[in-house]
Amino acid sequence: MLSLFKSFKIIALLEGISYLLLFGNMLFIKPYFLDIYKTLLFPMGMAHGLLFITYIILALLFSNKLKWDVKTTLIILVASIIPFGTFYIEKKYLKPIK
């Protein structure tokens, strides 16, 4: 279970990074470099989508194993759709558990 938990921490960080990269692509690259935008959008979107689904599945799996209450589980799930949310979750909820 420990290695699966470390994987969850890594997935949380990668999901947050991919979310910020996707926003950066939409806000800064799209208006100025339309050709690069089209080639970057699909792989970045696909990577973020896979990381997002993996994050949700692992969060639900760990909510049962670690017996998180409903409030904690919802906070962890909602953080995946807020920019910088997974970084906060990794620092506050996942760091204390070793």
Rank of each mutant, 00 (worst) to 15 (best):
M1E: 03
L2A: 11
S3G: 00
L4E: 07
L4H: 08
L4N: 09
F5W: 12
F5Q: 02
K6W: 12
K6V: 05
F8W: 04
F8G: 09
K9G: 00
I10K: 08
I11S: 02
I11F: 03
A12T: 12
L14D: 04
E15S: 07
E15P: 02
G16Y: 05
G16N: 01
I17V: 13
I17G: 01
S18C: 00
S18D: 05
Y19H: 08
L20P: 05
L21G: 01
L21E: 03
L21Y: 05
F28C: 01
P31H: 07
P31M: 06
Y32H: 15
D35A: 15
D35K: 15
I36Y: 12
Y37G: 00
K38Y: 12
K38A: 11
T39H: 11
L40A: 13
L41C: 07
L41E: 11
P43W: 08
G45W: 01
G45K: 04
G45C: 01
A47V: 15
G49Y: 01
G49V: 02
G49M: 04
L50D: 06
L51F: 02
F52I: 04
F52G: 03
T54C: 13
F62K: 08
F62L: 03
F62V: 04
S63M: 14
L66R: 10
K67C: 08
K67E: 14
K67Q: 15
W68T: 07
W68R: 07
W68D: 01
V70N: 14
V70Q: 13
K71M: 11
T72Y: 04
L74S: 15
L74R: 13
I75S: 09
L77T: 01
V78T: 14
A79H: 05
A79M: 12
S80V: 06
S80W: 03
I81S: 13
I82N: 05
P83M: 10
F84H: 07
G85S: 00
G85C: 06
Y88P: 07
E90T: 05
K92I: 15
L94G: 04
L94N: 07
K95L: 13
I97Y: 12
K98D: 15
